[in-house]
Amino acid sequence: MTISRAYLDHNATSPVRPEVAVAVARALELPGNPSSIHHEGRAAKAALEAARDQVAALIGAGQSRVIFTSGGTEAANAVLSGALIRTGAAAPTRLLMSATEHACVGAGHRFAPGSVEIVPVHPSGLIDLAALKQALERARDESVLVSVHAANNETGVVQPLAEIVALAKAHGRALVHSDAVQAVGKIPLDFAGLGLDALTLSGHKFAAPKGTGAIVLAEGVALDRAFIRGGGQESRQRCGTENLPGLVGLGEAARIARVHLAGIDADLRNGTEAALRRIAPDAVVFGSGAPRLPNTLCFAVPGLDAATALMALDLAGIALSSGSACSSGKVARSTVLAAMGVSPALTAGALRVSFGWNSAESDRSRFLTAFERLVGTLYQRRGQAA
């Protein structure tokens, strides 16, 4: 007998939509290699390029500027390898990144330690634009790469990309990359309109298959060397036979996300947050003073340990997380919350609820019922200790 569960961890992975699964199954039946010139190869190539069109349309980019990868980490590693250049200009020699970047940026770049500067964030989680401006001024004689995520995976805080790009343009020799893994498919993004030089995304965050992603490059910007060398696929930037079924699924997920993007609202998140504050008046909601993704709620209740809470909620049939899912299953102190100035004691209790395409009011109610029991036990123990 299958026991129903409430899945509230879409920022870790959003389950594949049924329509996407159907598209993947159909693509599995295509026998050809997209690089082959015969009929079967051309059919596979057509499916691949249709997926590229769908991804480009979702984020407002040119179709020819989308390079498929195995996911967001590979994509970010490639962009931050030092190979990103503007035509006719030197490659960046200095990296400026926000203090709340995902590990694929913070640990995935290839810049020398002395060439990297961490730009602080405010307690709200928003980047300190004045500090970024000062960092750019200090690097006025260098070529610079600025990397700031579009939205944080733990808190959902949405960064002011337009202002960041404006500061970089004023510098004159700066390129801007955004890790948009958490933002794509959840909020509108206009790659060309924002003036970004590079954007990276991952399919499994918006209901596409795991192991799919992309790099998006602006006109006049390129990677000056292939990051996976071989037969010349993906405009000779990412060689190797493409994961056609997965990428067809990525394209279908992008198509669906574009259709539904305008209809995404924060009702479930806001209702949960309001109920949470009633259940636990001393709860702290991280990033509540900043723009946030409509699906994300990150909070802590003083004295409630995250590991204990996650196990109790899992036993109650509820899946959520304590933050990034990229910590190999362990509950460790969040570097994001630390950068926001949150105390270690409060960070130890951080929990993240993230809704998605198949979330329902019943999921929210189930979570709140179980959470109220947890908090009731915590408050009872406090009373006994007092």
Rank of each mutant, 00 (worst) to 15 (best):
M1E: 13
R382T: 07
G263E: 15
A51D: 00
R17W: 13
N33A: 10
R173I: 07
L126H: 05
A83S: 14
V375Q: 02
V165F: 07
A76H: 09
R236I: 11
V79K: 02
D224R: 14
I215D: 01
A385I: 09
D314I: 09
F367L: 04
A192L: 13
E101M: 11
S362A: 15
P188C: 06
G329K: 03
R333I: 10
I164H: 00
T87V: 14
R352W: 02
P188T: 07
R5E: 12
P344S: 12
A83R: 13
A12Y: 08
L161Q: 07
N270Y: 04
A103K: 13
L374M: 08
A27S: 06
T93P: 00
G220N: 07
C298K: 08
Q134W: 12
I118R: 14
W357R: 13
G108E: 04
E372Q: 05
R94Q: 15
R277M: 02
S35R: 15
H260G: 13
G60H: 06
L313D: 06
I118N: 10
D267G: 12
Q54C: 08
G329T: 06
E49F: 11
A170K: 13
H39E: 15
S322G: 15
R86F: 09
G240C: 08
S98M: 06
T69F: 11
P245F: 00
P31A: 03
D179P: 04
S98V: 01
T369Y: 13
A207C: 08
V66W: 03
M311Q: 14
V331A: 09
G211E: 05
V248G: 03
K210C: 13
I85E: 07
F68H: 01
L297Y: 00
P160S: 07
D128E: 07
N243C: 11
H38K: 11
V146R: 00
E49D: 12
L196T: 05
F299D: 01
R352S: 07
A76P: 00
G82A: 09
V146D: 04
Q237G: 09
A107H: 12
G271P: 00
A57Y: 00
T296Y: 11
A75D: 02
F227W: 10
A139G: 10
